[in-house]
Amino acid sequence: MYSAPFEYVRASSWPEAVDLLEGGGEDARVIAGGQSLVPMMMLRLAAPSLLVDVSAAADRSVDLVDAELVLSALVRHADIEHSEVVRGSCPMLTEAVTHIGNVRVRHRGTIGGSLAHGEPTAELATVAVAEGATVTVLGPGGERAIPAGDLFVTHFTTSLEPGEVVTAVRFPVPGGRRGSSFQEIARRAGDFALVEAAATVALDEDDRCLSVRLVVGAVSDRPVDVSQAARPLIGERIGEDAVGEVARAVAAEIEVGPHTHAGREYRRRLVSVLAGRALLTAADRAAGAVHTDHGNGARA
């Protein structure tokens, strides 16, 4: 298979990438791992005139700075999968990346690329919204920070302006008794998700819920933050009955788009099941969590 012809340049820094993108006009695209863009090019769903390769623009750095996990946009899914720093500070990332594609895709695909692509089933998009991540972008007008919840507009469309490139993704690392969970159902390993659910739960000393976040992915044109629906859990001890009510309410109200391989009612049912599992697992992990500075929710 051949993609349409294109020109190719390498950027050795983020500012150079911005300059090259600006000079390349509106059909210029950034390439890093290329695991989403290149299949679309091969299928002729995308035909960029210029590819700006940013893989040498920066390091694949993973840093824990001032209660924030800062990932370079070039950090690959496999880097996340194997990073003890990530596992210790934002275990939902570790849990989610194993659902992405296969070992080959995970060795090339990057977090910046995944978020900038705006694919509605992308695991990292759902995690970024659930964990309240901030996306740092550089463009002709300088640097700005976009909350992940404001990045995704609709299918393959983000709020990135022309000439802007994602340079880093920042995940808050709150302390305390906190747990998280990422749940996904796909038709087979590595396939696009039918439904994703991501939850975080913080508990007080008495096991009562201090805060809760719940995001549903892959059912709409972008991750859907349904944390409001989980508010009845706050102040309570999280149990199956209350979680079941929240999960059913979320599933009843959420807009579920059409899908080639699964009916709306089936996916609505999956939303209920996965949202419930995510909330209970997150609460369970929060209850089992040892007090750490990193709020590590993963159980030993």
Binding site: M1, Y8, I31, G34, Q35, V38, P39, M42, L51, D53, S55, A78, V103, R104, V105, H107, R108
Partner: peptide
């Protein structure tokens, strides 16, 4: 040393 899709990697990369 790492597995990749040679079909999704451009030679120039």
């Amino acid at each position: 040393g790492e597995p990749v899709n040679s079909c999704l990697t451009f030679a120039v990369q």
